[in-house]
Design a protein around this nucleic acid. Structure first.
Lengths: 137, 137
DNA sequence: ATCTATGCAAAGCTTTTGCAATCGT
DNA sequence: ACGATTGCAAAAGCTTTGCATAGAT
């Protein structure tokens, strides 16, 4: 695989600039709206494509779904999860107590109800073929 | 709001039973496949509807997307997030160091690359109208 | 000149919803 | 009987993709 070279387009540049300006953690659609002020004809598809590229190279962070599907857990006891970055598999984490997180009741004015902690890694089965998994986790 | 009564249908019962049997954190579609062995004509919509009900009453846990949209963050420095359970807004959390999590390098055979910690709560703006937010977080 | 990136529209996927028929209670 | 629940199909939302054109190097 010959490494494809990346071009520096105004679209990509401006998307990154605008995302860095705000602290609202916008969705792709919201960012599209923002960027449109400077590039009225930019398409939503371009925003998605560039956000993916930027996340891949580590210039921005993608929040939320590690994947696009919701998963369900029949075990409602307190425990955390590990997700395999390679195959998407999710396992329970035992031996790490809830105490690792300080359980604050107030954070930045929020009244805290709960918290979720997820580890991301490479599962035993995928270790052999792990290649360039390091970024965009 | 008169509290609607919940009926005990075989569909709901079996969905819960099967989800409790597995530790694979299945998606709705996967669980649908599993449940079909016992209820061949059950529809995917029924699975979704019951998973929502069960999560609402706290019988199961819903993993992953707090919402259905991916959000992006231009700040790649180490920090965590708080999401408002009521309006979906996401803010940065400062003052809670990375150290709260023991940063294990190995968890259940996984090689850990990173972790995500998200708090869920009620933001200042939503506190007034918070009503029955306690469950299904 | 080459080949990546864009814009547009169409397609894909997961999840939700409308509706008439079912089935708990 | 009453009305919550189901199954089916259609709709909705977010995200991705195909393709011809534009544009960076």
């Amino acid at each position: 695989m010959p490494n494809r070279q990346r071009r520096n387009t105004p679209q990509r540049q401006i998307i990154l600039e605008e995302l860095r300006k705000v602290t609202s953690h916008p969705t792709a659609a919201e960012l599209h709206e923002i960027v449109r002020c400077r590039l009225p004809k930019i398409s939503l598809a371009t925003v998605y494509r560039n956000l993916d590229l930027l996340a891949e190279e580590g210039s921005i962070r993608k929040l939320g779904p590690g994947s696009q599907e919701t998963r369900f857990d029949g075990n409602v006891g307190r425990h955390y999860h590990v997700r395999c970055h390679h195959c998407g598999r999710v396992d329970d984490v035992h031996g790490i107590s809830d105490a690792v997180v300080g359980k604050p009741e107030q954070v930045g004015g929020y009244e805290i109800l709960s918290h979720h902690l997820e580890f991301v890694g490479i599962c035993p089965a995928c270790k052999p073929d792990r290649a360039a998994e390091a970024s965009s986790v």
